[in-house]
């Protein structure tokens, strides 16, 4: 039987962690772009758009991410499109992230006083102008801490991509545990890597929040 040193375990986990980071980034950037689009569409106030976007966010917030992953993985397959675990996991996490970010950012925009909208409209600004020059710059400041905080959720959410066979940190952990027969040790290492990824982000979010509060005072 082959012996595995702690370093063997750890280095393999770190290699797999690259995919966790990659999946998080894809989900976050893609989700951010779609989330922003949804936000702007919702702000136009057109009843059809508002209703459909509400439904969209409710579906993604009201079902487990695990189910979303399964449905996408097997759903896309049903359509006859040959899909990889990587693609379906990316899509599922991107949609999930977009629904949450659209909702977080909507709250931020709504916290901007109505007077800002009214003043901009009175100055004959168009919807696009008042959004890009008045509302969003102010909302952005408020949005940074909760957005960074949500990034932690996304990083941890990528663990679920292991169920469709995507080899990221958790999946790699499972595979290594199977060959080393040391699940407790391996999963402890996995947890440690997640913590090393998430803790700095949480710290940063808390730092930003404190900075914002000071600036507002």
């Amino acid at each position: 039987m082959i012996e595995f040193s702690l370093w063997d375990i750890f280095s393999n986990l770190l290699l797999a962690a690259r995919w966790t980071v990659a999946l998080s980034l894809v989900a976050f950037i893609g989700g951010g772009l779609i989330g922003l689009t949804l936000l702007v569409l919702r702000l136009t106030g057109k009843p059809v758009l508002v209703r459909s976007i509400n439904t969209y966010t409710q579906i993604f917030q009201g079902t487990p991410l695990l189910m979303q992953l399964f449905l996408l993985y097997f759903g896309i397959g049903l359509l006859g499109i040959d899909t990889s675990a990587w693609v379906s996991a990316s899509i599922a996490l991107t949609l999930y992230t977009s629904a949450y970010l659209a909702e977080i950012w909507r709250g931020c925009v709504e916290s901007i006083p109505r007077g800002q909208w009214e003043a901009s409209k009175s100055l004959a600004m168009s919807f696009g102008q008042l959004l890009t020059h008045v509302i969003l710059p102010q909302a952005l400041k408020i949005a940074v801490p909760p957005t960074v905080g949500f990034l932690v959720q996304v990083v941890k959410g990528t663990a679920l991509a292991s169920v469709v066979g995507f080899v990221e940190l958790t999946k790699a952990g499972g595979m290594i545990a199977n060959v080393t027969f040391a699940p407790l040790l391996v999963y402890s290492c996995v947890a440690l890597v997640y913590f090393a990824l998430c803790f700095p982000i949480s710290l940063y979010a808390r730092f930003l929040e404190r900075k914002l509060h000071v600036a507002r005072r």
């Binding site: 006083p113 007077g115 800002q116 009214e118 003043a119 009175s122």
Partner: peptide
């Protein structure tokens, strides 16, 4: 032009 009670400066 309109001026508001609460100023509404940016």
């Amino acid at each position: 032009g309109m001026i508001f009670q609460s100023f509404n400066l940016f």
